[in-house]
Amino acid sequence: MQIRLAQDADFAQWLPLWKGYQTFYKTDIAESVTALTWKRFLDPAEPMHCAVAEIDGALVGMVHYIYHRSCWTAGDYVYLQDLFTLSNLRGKGVGRALIEHVYASAAHEAA
């Protein structure tokens, strides 16, 4: 399994994960918001990020996280907003690996 930042070419595999996440939480996010969110993930000037879990070329999980300012500290916070893995891989370490990626990203930014 490889954990990496999402790339433009990942959209077609990311979208079913994103839709699965929405189904799990019984919500339906507008396509225009989904398109904007994806665009933000790919923009280095945006504080929003998407990492994906990949096994044998297939995306099997995703995590979205956002850096934001705080009134309580000089440094930024990292908010893990969305986490989703394919149901047949739950309990197999995919979600944990995605969370660990967010931890590592936050530690790198703080350094």
Rank of each mutant, 00 (worst) to 15 (best):
Q2P: 00
Q2F: 04
Q2A: 08
Q2T: 13
R4Q: 10
Q7E: 13
D10P: 02
W14S: 06
L15I: 07
K19E: 14
G20E: 07
Y21H: 11
T23K: 13
K26T: 10
E31A: 15
S32M: 02
S32W: 01
V33W: 03
T34S: 14
A35K: 12
A35L: 07
L36E: 13
L36D: 13
T37L: 01
W38H: 03
L42C: 03
L42T: 03
D43N: 14
P44W: 03
P47C: 07
P47M: 07
M48E: 04
M48D: 08
H49R: 15
H49P: 02
V52E: 01
V52M: 03
A53C: 06
E54S: 08
G57C: 04
A58E: 14
V60W: 00
V63D: 02
I66T: 04
Y67A: 06
H68W: 11
W72F: 15
T73S: 15
G75Y: 11
D76I: 03
D76V: 08
Y77A: 13
V78L: 15
L80V: 15
L80S: 13
Q81F: 07
L83C: 11
L83N: 08
T85I: 02
L86F: 00
L86P: 00
N88Y: 10
G91P: 05
K92M: 10
G93F: 08
G95A: 11
G95D: 08
G95T: 09
R96P: 00
A97N: 08
V102S: 09
A107G: 01
H108V: 07
A110Q: 09
A111I: 04
